[in-house]
Structure formats: structure tokens, C-alpha cells
């Protein structure tokens, strides 16, 4: 099916381009007022033995801070980022009841990324003449089983997590009140993709179809799976492709927003000092003249001006 090959290309490229566009939209926004929030994990040094990132301190605790070099720990920042990315730490610490299902779904995504990578590797291997199957042994067989384990566990985690969150939102009176139709739709969409993948899996328990798809994509040839149920696979590919195109246009693109909120807003605490990059950015930002203005009476007349007096 040539359509599926082309559609898959479009979906994958679309996901990347639309996500990048989203990031570009945020990146090109003007420099904003500082709005950091502590703890900031890169803040190192400190009074006593404890490092600042542990208790939420900052360089402002330092006497004559502006005369001293900043103490920054990029390692601490990376560790904090990894904890958040891999485990959704803030939700775990503050709201464990929500964390289990939310984490199941997100872990499922990560596992399916790994499954995708393994399927890709398997496809490349097969194209260059390696055997990837259950019987010949060696790396091909290991990859074969790893792909299987990742595929089935990832799909189940995503399915359970997404439908679990729908049910939880339906059942919990407070969550129900704040859930829009689109929020349900988003979760059900993810659930549908996971279930359609599981339907394909029933006829292809070792996910050969993943390698078949990548082989087709790598050789620019039609997706023609040898084992899987063609209709079920077509439905799965179309749903997944649509989801990939849809995600960057919704708040499910929080993988983009989260980068900006942490790195550009709440962890961004570089002061505006002479001779610094931040200082130069500020100078440039101050040159902007707004085209419109706000309308309240006090806006147009500065109370200190002669006109006001």
C-alpha cells in the first residue's frame, strides 16, 4: 500500500516539523520579565554544608553577589531534568494518586520509542542481510525478543494509562468538572491507537510489522506486511499518523512547553549586568516601541508629567 508509506512519511515529518514550529513560536517570543521560582537546581554553593539547590537558595544569599563569580551546577540541573523527564518527579512528590496512571501512559510512550528504535534496527539489519528471528540465535534473536517485550509492554502501559485516566476523570467529581470534551478526546485518541496496535499484535505477536514498515520506509516501497492483518494494520497506521499530526497542535505538546517553562522562566535567573549576554539581550529588548497601547486613563498620562500636574 503506497498510500500508507506516503502517509507514514507525512506523519513523521509532520510531527517533527509541527513540534519544531511550536518550539519556534515560543522561542521567538520577546524577552520577558524575570520570574524565577525556587528551588532552582543549577544554584550551587551555599551557606554551610548544604548546596543551594537542596534548600532552594540562590546567589542572592551571597554578600556583594555582583562581585563574585556565579556558582552553577549543570550536573544538578541535568539530574533534576532527568528525574522529571523519566519519572515525572514533581507529580510523584505532590500528587501520587494521579501519578500512577499518568506515569503508566508516559512510561508506555518511552517504551514504545525504544520499540520503534529496535524495530528500526531490526529493519536495517534485515536489509543488510542479518537474520532477525526467534530461532537463529545471536544478536538477531536478542533484538527479536527485546522488540517483542518492548512492544507488548509499551502498548499495554499506554492503553491502561490512557483509559485509566479517562475513567478517573469521569469518576472523580473535581476532575470531571475541569475536564473539557477535548481532554477526553485526547486520551481516547491515544487509547484507540494503543488498542489498534494490540489488535495488530494478535495476528503478529512478535511485531514483525514494525520491521516491515521501516523496511518499506527505508526502501521507499509500499507497506506490505507478510503476516499482519492488513486492514487492522492500515487502521493502526492511519490512527497513529493522525495522532502524531494532532499532538503538536494541542496541549499534548507539553514536551515543548515544559522546556520553555523550566529553562526560560522558572529556572532562568541570570541578572541584567553590564558585560553579560543577558545585559545585551535586555538592551536590545528595550528598543522595542509598541504599536498599540492600553486604554485606561492613567496609562496615557504619566502622573509625574507636567500634563498631569
Amino acid at each position: 500500500m503506497v498510500f500508507l508509506t506516503i502517509f507514514t512519511y507525512v506523519a513523521l515529518i509532520g510531527f517533527v516539523v509541527l513540534s519544531a514550529y511550536k518550539a519556534y513560536q515560543y522561542a521567538k517570543m520577546p524577552m520577558h520579565s524575570r520570574f524565577e521560582l525556587y528551588p532552582v537546581p543549577k544554584e550551587a554553593g551555599g551557606i554551610g554544608d548544604e548546596e543551594r539547590y537542596h534548600y532552594g537558595g540562590s546567589f542572592y544569599e551571597e554578600y556583594e553577589w555582583h562581585k563574585k563569580p556565579r556558582k552553577v551546577s549543570h550536573l544538578s540541573e541535568i539530574i533534576d531534568m532527568l528525574k522529571e523527564m523519566l519519572f515525572i518527579k514533581i507529580l510523584f512528590v505532590n500528587n501520587q494518586r494521579q501519578w500512577w496512571l499518568c506515569y503508566a501512559m508516559h512510561l508506555g510512550f518511552y517504551v514504545l520509542f525504544a520499540w520503534t528504535a529496535c524495530s528500526f534496527l531490526g529493519a536495517v539489519g534485515q536489509l543488510v542481510g542479518f537474520t532477525v528471528n526467534a530461532t537463529t540465535g545471536g544478536w538477531g534473536t536478542i533484538l527479536y525478543y527485546i522488540t517483542f517485550l518492548l512492544g507488548i509492554s509499551g502498548a499495554i502501559l499506554v492503553a491502561v494509562g490512557s483509559i485509566g485516566m479517562v475513567l478517573k476523570r469521569k469518576k472523580d467529581a473535581v476532575l470531571r468538572k475541569y475536564t473539557n470534551p477535548q481532554d477526553y478526546f485526547n486520551l481516547l485518541f491515544i487509547f484507540a491507537v494503543a488498542v489498534s496496535g494490540l489488535v495488530v499484535w494478535v495476528t503478529d505477536p512478535f511485531f514483525n510489522y514494525g520491521r516491515e514498515i521501516f523496511k518499506a520506509l527505508l526502501t521507499f516501497s509500499p507497506i506490505e506486511p507478510s503476516i499482519a492483518n492488513e486492514t487492522a494494520l492500515a487502521v493502526h497506521i492511519v490512527l497513529l499518523g493522525l495522532l502524531l499530526l494532532y499532538i503538536p497542535m494541542t496541549k499534548m505538546s507539553h514536551y515543548v512547553g515544559k522546556y520553555f517553562v523550566f529553562h526560560e522562566v522558572i529556572w532562568s535567573n541570570d541578572p541584567n549586568l553590564k558585560g553579560t549576554k543577558t545585559g545585551e539581550k535586555v538592551r536590545k529588548a528595550l528598543q522595542y516601541k509598541p504599536k498599540r497601547t492600553w486604554s485606561a486613563p492613567h496609562i496615557s498620562v504619566d502622573p509625574r508629567s507636567d500634563e498631569a500636574k
Partner: peptide, 23 residues
């Protein structure tokens, strides 16, 4: 962006991404 330059980025992120987890 023109009239709320100093706050548009933090505002839009908070406006757009709430997952309503109620934490």
C-alpha cells in the same frame, strides 16, 4: 506580543498547557 511583551511567554505557557491534574 505587542502590548504584553514582558509577560507573553510565561503567560501563554500557563494558559495553554494546564493538564488539570488539580495538584
Amino acid at each position: 506580543e505587542d502590548t504584553n511583551r514582558s509577560w507573553i511567554q510565561p503567560l501563554m505557557i500557563s494558559f495553554e498547557y494546564c493538564a488539570k491534574c488539580n495538584t
